[in-house]
């Protein structure tokens, strides 16, 4: 298995002893981080790479149209404030979730889209997992395709990020599993028919063949929680944003792949 080398080198052990417990240690070192892309078969990899075959590109195209269309007559389109997305939105997804000063909490990219609708466009928020929210989020995220995930170094995010990590490492559900058991300790192994990925959030929103459609990172997390027979959180819950924050730190500096394709 590609995991943990038998023993850390003596210098690393010494460093751990010096800082105390390995509680803050990174379970997967940055150099060992791998996208789920690497574990997919060549056909699905080719489907993701080829823009004409990648079904997620349809959502991105829908998003481009929504970007330029006023949400209601007389309202500003996104482009009215931000202009050309290829310029103004480049790199944005790589640093989300981010602190939202207006609400005083961390928000993810889909919350950002809805915050703009509410405060700048006088429009109702789009429902979670609705085609329009997925399309706009995918369009914005696709502007950062290939850029390394770079979580903001903002101390206000620290508490939620730590909560996310605690959630990731807590055993939950009827099976008593944790995210970390699968994604830190056993990635690369076979869970029935699925090869367990590291659980990196690099491709979202993405097209999943099993869903036969697009889905957000929260939908993915919901799937894993249900698999653990744990109670999923409601879409938009702060617990998901906390998990997303930790996942982003855990993933950096892997490049963004939106719109990715997954089995």
């Amino acid at each position: 298995m590609p995991r943990r080398p038998g023993l850390p080198p003596p210098a690393a052990v010494l460093a751990l002893l010096l800082v105390g417990a390995p509680a803050g240690a990174e379970p997967i070192a940055p150099a060992d981080r791998r996208s789920g892309f690497d574990q997919m078969g060549p056909e699905i990899q080719a489907m993701q790479r080829d823009e004409t075959a990648n079904p997620g590109m349809l959502a991105v195209a829908d998003g481009a149209e929504l970007w330029a269309t006023p949400p209601a007559p007389g309202r500003q389109p996104c482009a009215g404030c931000h202009g050309e997305a290829a310029v103004g939105m480049r790199g944005v997804a790589a640093r989300y979730p981010a602190w939202d000063a207006r609400t005083g909490r961390p928000i993810d990219l889909q919350d950002r889209v809805n915050a703009c609708r509410r405060t700048h466009q006088g429009a109702d928020p789009l429902a979670y997992e609705s085609p329009d929210l997925l399309a706009l989020t995918a369009f914005v995220a696709a502007q950062s395709r290939g850029m390394p995930i770079a979580p903001p170094d903002d101390p206000r995010l620290g508490a939620a990020r730590a909560e996310g990590r605690a959630l990731f490492e807590a055993r939950q559900g009827q099976l008593g599993l944790s995210c970390a058991i699968c994604h830190d300790d056993h990635w690369g192994r076979r869970l029935g028919a699925a090869v367990i990925p590291q659980g990196q959030p690099t491709g979202y929103p993405l097209y999943r063949l099993e869903w036969q459609g697009m889905g957000s990172l929260q939908r993915r997390l919901r799937n894993c929680l249900t698999g653990m027979r744990a109670e999923p959180f409601a879409y938009g819950a702060p617990d998901y944003v906390a998990l997303e924050l930790y996942l982003a730190t855990r993933a950096a500096p892997l490049p963004l792949e939106t719109p990715a394709v997954r089995p």
């Binding site: 939950q172 559900g173 999923p232």
Partner: peptide
Amino acid sequence: GLARVGRAWR
């Protein structure tokens, strides 16, 4: 010792 068990399995 279980936490947050889903409704269907509680």
